[in-house]
Computed example of a mutant assay.
Amino acid sequence: MFSKKKILISILLVLVAIYVRKRWKAPGIPAHLLGHRVDFYPEFIDEKTHQELLKILKGMKVFPTNAQDLQFYNTTYEHIGESEPLDPELGCTSRYLVPNAARTLCILPNRFDLAKHFMTYGGIDGLKENFERGKYA
């Protein structure tokens, strides 16, 4: 009825399908964030507060990124010598720099946490240099 070859191919296809399904369902969450307790609070925000917050959110219309933080406060020194001219067509050519408030220079983000994040995780594109290959991962 069934040859051994057909049975082996069927088993192999089932195993491949199980692997692919498990691989696609795997969460993209780092291991150190897995395994923690999750608490669910139904109706955490009452309906009236929900509607008020939604109204405020819809009224904002613009959601600037943290990299554009100088739109909201002033600093004594905009940069410490790392600035480069902003290319009007390409923007900032270095992935670690962001445009200043006047959009004339590329500077490190002024908030230290943003600058650290840019340097640690490869800037706006998230590129990291692989030193073994000498290329970006």
Score class of each variant (00 low, 15 high):
G126I: 04
T120A: 12
Q71W: 00
K58I: 06
A101M: 02
L33G: 05
Y77F: 10
A67M: 04
F72H: 04
E43V: 14
P99S: 01
Q51G: 04
G123F: 06
N130S: 13
I56D: 14
K58F: 13
I9C: 08
Y77I: 06
A101R: 02
L57Y: 15
E52R: 15
T120D: 10
T65P: 03
D39C: 11
G126C: 07
I56A: 15
I7S: 06
F131R: 15
A17V: 07
I80A: 11
G81R: 03
L54G: 11
I107G: 00
S94K: 13
A26K: 08
Q51I: 12
H50L: 15
F112R: 02
L90W: 07
P109K: 00
M60A: 11
V62K: 07
L8R: 09
H32G: 04
K61P: 03
Q68G: 02
E52M: 14
R21I: 08
G134D: 09
W24D: 06
E52V: 12
T75C: 01
A101E: 05
G134Q: 10
Q68V: 02
P109C: 00
H50E: 15
P64A: 02
H36K: 12
A102G: 01
I7F: 12
L57M: 11
L105C: 05
I7M: 09
N100Y: 08
F63V: 05
Q51W: 07
S3L: 06
C92G: 04
L54F: 09
M1V: 10
